[in-house]
Design a protein around this nucleic acid. Structure first.
Length: 487
RNA sequence: CGGGGUGUAGCGCAGCCUGGUAGCGCGCCAGCUUUGGGAGCUGGAUGUCGAAGGUUCAAAUCCUUUCGCCCCGACCA
């Protein structure tokens, strides 16, 4: 880790850069006293709150309601769905003692790694008729997975997320839900995070433990690696059968429900950092920036200070009327240059400087987080123009991220090309390649190159389907899949 | 679990080889001067030197034991 106050260059050491941006942006720190856990500091948590607020609105607009289930899940529950146990058992933390006594093995709890099982249990109690369906529930919660290697926001032992859990009368309904929620995530990523994503289907070996199918959104980080930014699972009747979630159909027949689950986590904050930020620190898309604009008053003498701060407060009030979150940084004893650096590292999109000269001329200096120069703007029209400026900034970030991804996406046809692109350096690109569809080939490629199949693109999300031959084995393939090194 | 490293002020580190009053940078506090891109000067506060035991007149330093953390090789939102 670099010394405090310095940010390692992205091009020199990407992981160090990432840590530095988080520290200098005052987003979070490693808890240290609790293995693998992090403390999300106010500025970082404020970003998560903005993410939550917008997603929550989208969930409610699509008919879901929030609920909350226990943090502790009986160990016996986890074991009920065979693939689910197998997938999660190694990373589960278990409560073995309570009330000052050891718990018998059959009374032990695990701290939820995800809630399909306990929610399945309650769905069984709540659902008896087709009239109870669909049941559309979302939970905002923390979960815990005992990971070997942790990285702030991307993979920590405890993390915050939302998990949607729904039950439907038919597989068709459930599949529509899976698709709908994947689109909610995809739209959110693109509209709010200014992060282009590829929507696709996971291969069998990458899908959620216990699901029939997992759909995902995959984004490219600025080192070319892929980040899974959200998932939506078709659980089929697997959990329905394991937890006996049955309902009576209109015709009086008894059937198991079809379930889905879907989630995004605080990992999105990591995605935000690695999609937009630069060597000066964090860059936030205006739509998710807790502070969208900051006003720095500049003064020398006391009487100037009073005058300048007053003008800044008045401008701030005008800006707030436009629905923009603005802060006046009138902290005394900290010089303007110092403040500039601080707000830059915190990713604030727009900075406005007001000094005696500006008050005299009726203008203010504005600086966008991404441009080098400053621009003079009339103070009386600034508030009116700011929403447009922010919208333009948001659009610019999306387009820049899009172009970066396009520039780092390749279509590969031979294994030699593949080995060249994914060399020893550990770098990555998005590569569209043919794959023979077998788990064995996928594992072989992963072992040889650490490259994985990120997803099989949904229609329109990748190259149009075409017959070809597997990049590794030469066997026939019907469609190209997305390959990359990933987080 | 195997290999390597490290524990000294809030943070980052030096001191250890060759035992002798615990130091540096940043940060923090106070005052003055400053304030349109990371301020300067002066003064100040802060430590059971990871823990336990031993050797010694004397241990951060030498010896023994122990604990924690970090990095590299087997899982993943």
């Amino acid at each position: 880790m670099a010394e405090t106050g310095k940010i390692t260059k992205q091009s020199e050491d990407f992981p160090a850069w990432y840590q530095d941006v988080i520290r200098e942006g005052d987003l979070a720190e490693v808890a240290k006293i609790v293995k693998g856990c992090m403390v999300i500091k106010p500025h970082g948590y404020a970003i998560w709150e903005k993410i939550q607020a917008d997603l929550d609105r989208r969930f409610k607009e699509t008919g879901h309601r929030n609920a909350y289930f226990p943090l502790l899940i009986p160990m016996s529950f986890i074991k009920k769905e065979a693939e689910h146990v197998e997938g999660f058992a190694p990373e589960i933390a278990v409560v073995t003692h309570a009330g000052g006594k050891p718990l018998p093995e059959d009374e032990q709890y695990c701290i939820r790694p995800t809630s399909e099982t306990i929610i399945g249990h309650f769905f069984a109690k709540w659902i008896s008729s087709y009239r109870d369906l669909p049941l559309l529930i979302n939970q905002w919660a923390n979960v815990m997975r005992w990971e070997l290697h942790t990285r702030m926001f991307l993979r920590t032992t405890e993390f915050l997320w939302q998990e949607g859990h729904t039950a439907h009368a038919t597989h068709e309904d459930a599949l529509a839900e899976v698709a709908r929620m994947l689109d909610v995530y995809g739209d959110f990523a693109q509209e709010m995070m200014a992060m282009p994503v590829i929507r696709g289907v996971k291969t069998d070996s990458e899908k959620f433990a216990g699901a029939l199918e997992t759909r995902c959104i995959e984004a490219m980080m600025r080192d070319g690696r892929a980040l899974q930014a959200g998932t939506s699972h078709d659980l089929g009747q697997n959990f329905g059968k394991a937890f006996d979630v049955k309902f009576q159909t209109e015709k009086g027949r008894e059937e198991y429900v079809w379930q889905t689950s879907w989630g995004v986590s605080t990992r999105l904050v990591g995605a935000l950092i690695m999609t937009h930020s630069d060597d000066s620190g964090l860059i936030l898309p205006p739509a998710l920036a807790p502070v969208q604009a900051v006003i720095v008053p500049i003064y020398k003498k006391e009487e100037e200070r009073a005058q300048v701060v007053e003008a800044a407060q008045k401008l701030a009030a005008d800006i707030r009327k436009k629905g923009i979150c603005v802060e006046v940084d009138d902290r005394d004893g900290k010089r303007p240059g110092d403040k500039y650096y601080e707000w830059e590292r915190k990713g604030v999109p727009v900075r406005i400087e007001i000094g005696p000269r500006d008050i005299a001329s009726g203008e203010a200096m504005t600086k966008l987080r991404l441009s080098d120069g400053k621009e003079k703007m009339r103070m009386d029209t600034l508030a009116a123009e700011l929403p447009g400026t922010l919208a333009g900034f948001q659009r610019f970030l999306y387009e820049r991220a899009w172009k970066f991804r396009e520039d780092n996406t390749v279509v590969l046809n031979t294994w030699d090309e593949f080995r060249e692109v994914f060399g020893e350096s550990g770098g990555s690109k998005f590569a569209w390649c043919h794959w023979d569809g077998t788990r064995e080939t996928e594992a072989l490629i992963k072992e040889e190159t650490k490259v994985t199949i990120r997803c099989i693109p949904l229609e329109g999300q990748g190259p149009a389907p075409e017959d070809g031959t597997c990049i590794r084995t030469g066997r026939p393939s019907r469609q190209r899949v997305l390959m990359a090194r990933s987080y």
